[in-house]
Amino acid sequence: MKIRIKLYASLAEYLPADAVKNEADLEVNDGTTPTQVISRLGLPERMCHMVLVNGVYIAPDERLEKVLEEGDHLAIWPPVAGG
């Protein structure tokens, strides 16, 4: 199935070459979790501070179990702030 990944700030360097505006589609197996995507893309775990699926925050201990679905948007940021 296909999901959309979005990597921002310093994580942008881990995006696939065909990414546009920090987004790319990724083919994954059924039952894939955020942790598996993070591992597959080689993202340093300590830099995956904010992990959102369809805009909803996934806590670190939920990233192992949350099962992604077709068309889900998985967005990840390192520690950032502003205001």
């Binding site: 950032v80 702030a81 205001g83």
Partner: peptide, 9 residues
């Protein structure tokens, strides 16, 4: 990235 990193967040 400055505060502007929040736009996409």
């Amino acid at each position: 990235f400055g505060t502007q990193v929040l736009m996409n967040v």
